[in-house]
Design a protein around this nucleic acid. Structure first.
Lengths: 136, 136
DNA sequence: ACAAGAAATTAGAATAATTATAATATTAAA
DNA sequence: TTTAATATTATAATTATTCTAATTTCTTGT
């Protein structure tokens, strides 16, 4: 259980203004036991459900992108009609159940080390992400 | 250099009707030396440029999805505002240059074997794809 | 080979996803 | 505190994708 005051501090420390909208979004995203996967639309609906207050869809986009830039959210590389995000920002991978359209975390140690044997001049590796698609 | 007749046969063999639109799309996609990466919009513009004929954007979507389903195209899991496809349908991975928004093929042997140590009951692995993001 | 019916395909119109910007709110400076 | 500067919100606009009525292609029977 994280208090509203803690979210306000967290936001201030990231030089993000602690608005009512952002605090509501924090409640939905970070006030939970387990990390979770969501689309902007999922989040938009959860805000209405959990806080009873409405935040415009554009604001949800803005805030999610701001949080992503600050490193509080991870974008999951997957081809879906909507973009998926993860509140688990540690280095890890994903299963994607194509039929159910559901994501499952895959710990780094469940995949083992990945050695990239090729390099591109002038560029360095920012991240290595594995997506394992599942079927029945 | 692949002839128009060969595309017609290829389409027929896949129980896809060889329409003028699809033959034009085949010319742009498969009549080239190297495989390539593209978005629907890239392809839409290339058709106009290379064949001089206009195919509606919706038809480009339909055709790309039909070709994907038949296994002639691979969808690349990446978060971009547009969906990327690859005419290289062999098992391989990708670099993504975040700044330039450019994809580069990564051969399977450049990544090495990936052992997935976790399994989901009732599901089997359909594909394992690695995305390596690059920065300057 | 040809016509009629069945099935697939096309592309305009509709919808859904995302972004740009004018209006508003928050913070910093005096 | 009031004012000016800056950030944020949310409507409106744009871009990406899908739906479906009209059209084309294919199949079957003659």
């Amino acid at each position: 259980m994280t208090s509203k005051q803690e979210f306000i501090e967290k936001l201030r420390n990231s030089s993000l203004r602690p608005t009512k909208q952002r605090i509501n979004i924090c409640e939905v995203l970070f006030n939970r036991d387990k990390t979770f996967h969501f689309t902007i639309n999922d989040l938009f609906n959860l805000i209405k459900d959990k806080t009873g207050e409405k935040v415009s869809l554009a604001t949800v986009y803005n805030t999610v992108h701001a949080f992503h830039k600050k490193g509080y959210l991870k974008e999951i590389p997957i081809n879906s009609n909507q973009t998926y995000f993860d509140t688990n920002v540690t280095d890890h991978h994903h299963f994607f159940d194509v039929k159910e359209e559901k994501l499952i975390d895959l710990k780094n140690e469940d995949v083992g080390p990945i050695e990239i044997q090729k390099s591109i001049p002038g560029k360095k590796i920012k991240s290595v992400e594995v997506l394992v698609k599942l079927e029945d």
